[in-house]
Nucleic acid binder design. Structure first.
Lengths: 313, 313
DNA sequence: GGCTGCGATGCGCGAGTAGCATGGCCAGTC
DNA sequence: GACTGGCCATGCTACTCGCGCATCGCAGCC
C-alpha cells in the first residue's frame, strides 16, 4: 500500500470520476486508472463501478474510504508531529545536572528556553556527575550538566562535551574575619582555618588540584545542608568553600573572597557521542552557554548582579 | 509513504538492528538499510542512531513509531473489514420488495440468509415495483424483489434480472361456493362473479393478460386491507384474486382455486446492471430462489406446507 | 593485529509506474 | 440510425525505483 494510492482513491471517490481526479492531482487519466486498478488488486475487491459518466463507489469502496481517511489523517499527523519536533514546537528533553548547577545556571537556561519553545517538555534530575553520565549512557537523560576537575577530563570518545564555563572557588568567611575585606586569597593562606564541610572529604575534592603538598584542610564541622553550612560560617565557626555557581544562594551576612589559585572545575553540558539528541538539546545548550556567560564575572565576584536579559524564575 | 517502509521501520525499531530486521523480513541488509534511509529522507528526520552494535531510535524515531503502529493497525483493520465484507462476515444489504413478497418469500429468505451470515445487516423496504426500481437506481436499495406481468418485461439493459418464480393466481371463494371444490377454473368461468378488489383496478391488472376480450371483472366492493378483503369473501360477498405468494396469509375459512389460464406474474430479484452489488446480494438471491422453489407447488396449491429446511421467522 | 559483526554504498537488473495514444462503451443529439 | 463527446481500459515505451550482490568502512573483541 502506498499513501499515494490512498490519496488518489480518496480523490476519485470524492469527485466520482477518474478523469476529474487525474486533473485535480495533475496526473494523466491512465495513471489514475491504473492506480485504482492496482489498489483494487491489492485489497482484493472492486472499489468502483465504472459507468459511462464516471465511477461510483461499491460497498467495498465505501468501506475502504473511511479507513483510507483515517490512515491518511494519521500519517499527516505523524508528519506534523515530526515537523513540530524539528521546529521545537514539541518534544521532550531530560536534563541531568549536578547540585550547584541547579542554583542558577540550569533553571535560568530552562526558563529562557521555555520562553522560546513552549511546546517542549523539560525534565530535570539532580545528581552526582558519575550517576548523571550513567543516566546519559542508559538513555535516561538527553543531556547532563556536569563538573569535572581539570585533571580528570571526561572521556571525549564516549561523550560530546560542550564547555559552559570554568568555575572558580570562593571562600565564605564571617564578615569580621581577617580575610573578609580581601578580594582574593591564596589557598595557602587558609592553612590555619577550620573548614565547615558539606561532607567529610568534599572540601578536599574541591581543593585537590591546588592543595599544597601535605596540606590537608582541617574540618571540624560537617553540615550537609547548604543553608546550615553558611549559617555556621556567619556565626564565626569557620570558613567554607563556595563554588562560584552557588554564589547566588549565599546570604548577605558573610563575605565571599575569591580563591586565587584554587582548582577550577570545568563545567560541561554533555551528550552521548554517536547518539542524536532531541532537537531541543542544541538549543538548550546555547541557552546554558548564554547564562554561563552572565555568571562568569571576571573580577570582584561578590553579589553577581541579576542579568537583565535573563528573566529570573 | 509505503506501508512496507513502515513495517520495515517498525521491525528495525523492535529488533534494534537493521541486519536482524532484514533477516526477520526476508530482505537483504542493504534493502532495509535503504528503506530506512528513504523513510528518513521522506519525513526529513533521522530516525535511528547508527552504532557499532545495531541502531537505536532517536527522539524523532520514537515519535514516528507510535504513529507508524497506528497507521499500520488501521490499514490492517481496513483489510480485515474488506475481507469480512467479501466473506459475508460483515456488510449491509438493503432489500426492496413488493407487498405480497413480504408474506413469506422475502422473510424466509432473509431468515435463512442471516442464519448463515450473522454479521450482515439486512434492511427491507416494502413498496410498489416502480418505486422499488427507482430506489435501486438511486442507490437506496441493493436488490429489489418485484413482480412484472409477462407483457411488461423489465428493461434488461438497465437491470439484471434474477428469476425467482412465476406466480400463478388463485381465486378465493366462500366454502359453499359453486367452485369451492374445483381444483382449477378458467377465467371465463368467473364472468358472472362479483370481485372484492384491493383497489378499483387492481384485479384488472392482475387478470389483464388473460381477460377474454371485452370482459371486465365486475367489482362491487373495494377493500384495501387484505384481511378485510378475504373476510368479505368468507362472508359470501364475492370472490377475490389471491396471488400465489399470499396463500400463506389466507385464513382457512375460504377455499382457494387455481386460476388455470390466469396471467402469470414473473417474480424477479433485480439488481442494477453495471453496478456491483454488496457481496451479500448474490447469496441472498440464492436464498430467495431456494425459498421460491418451496413456494411453487405444481399441483393443488391449498395450504403450502412449511418447508422443513427453512426456519420460519 | 586479525577477526567478526554491523551499517553504508556502488553497481546492475528487473519490476513498477508514468505518459502517450488508442479503442471500446455509453448517452445524448441531430 | 449515424454521429459525437465524454469516460474508462489498455498496449506500448521510457524511466525511475528498489532490490540483491558485492564490497567498504568502522568498531569492538579475542
Amino acid at each position: 500500500m502506498q499513501s499515494q494510492s490512498l490519496q488518489v482513491f480518496r480523490e476519485v471517490a470524492r469527485l466520482g470520476s477518474i478523469t476529474a481526479a487525474a486533473r485535480a492531482l495533475a496526473y494523466t487519466q491512465s495513471a489514475v486508472s491504473r492506480q485504482i486498478a492496482a489498489l483494487e488488486e491489492d485489497v482484493g475487491a472492486t472499489l468502483f463501478d465504472r459507468a459511462a459518466r464516471g465511477v461510483t463507489l461499491t460497498e467495498a469502496g465505501r468501506c475502504l474510504l473511511g479507513h483510507a481517511d483515517a490512515v491518511l489523517d494519521r500519517w499527516e499527523t505523524a508528519r506534523r508531529d515530526l515537523a513540530a519536533l524539528a521546529g521545537l514546537g514539541a518534544g521532550r528533553v531530560r536534563i541531568g545536572a549536578f547540585a550547584t548547577a541547579m542554583a542558577a545556571l540550569v533553571p535560568r537556561a530552562i526558563a529562557a528556553f521555555q520562553a522560546r519553545h513552549e511546546g517542549v517538555t523539560v525534565n530535570v534530575v539532580e545528581g552526582l556527575t558519575p550517576r548523571l553520565l550513567d543516566r546519559l549512557a542508559d538513555g535516561d537523560a538527553d543531556v547532563a550538566v556536569v563538573s569535572s576537575p581539570p585533571d580528570q577530563p571526561l572521556d571525549a570518545a564516549r561523550y560530546r562535551l560542550h564547555h559552559l564555563l570554568d568555575e572558580r572557588l570562593l571562600v565564605a568567611v564571617p564578615r569580621d574575619h581577617r580575610l573578609a575585606r580581601r578580594r582574593q586569597v591564596r589557598a595557602a593562606e587558609l592553612a590555619g582555618e577550620s573548614f565547615i564541610a558539606g561532607s567529610a572529604d568534599a572540601e578536599r575534592t574541591l581543593l585537590r588540584a591546588t592543595l599544597p603538598a601535605g596540606w590537608t584542610p582541617r574540618v571540624d564541622i560537617v553540615v550537609r545542608e547548604w543553608t546550615g553550612k553558611l549559617g555556621c560560617v556567619a556565626a564565626g565557626l569557620g570558613i567554607a568553600l563556595v563554588p562560584a555557581l552557588a554564589v547566588r544562594a549565599t546570604p548577605a551576612d558573610l563575605a565571599l573572597v575569591a580563591l586565587r589559585d584554587a582548582s577550577v572545575r570545568r563545567i560541561h553540558a554533555v551528550t552521548l557521542a554517536g547518539r542524536t539528541p532531541p532537537a531541543a538539546v542544541p538549543e538548550l545548550i546555547r541557552e546554558l552557554r548564554a547564562v554561563a556567560a552572565t555568571l562568569t564575572i571576571p573580577s570582584r565576584p561578590r553579589r553577581t548582579p541579576t542579568p537583565t536579559h535573563v528573566r529570573r524564575t
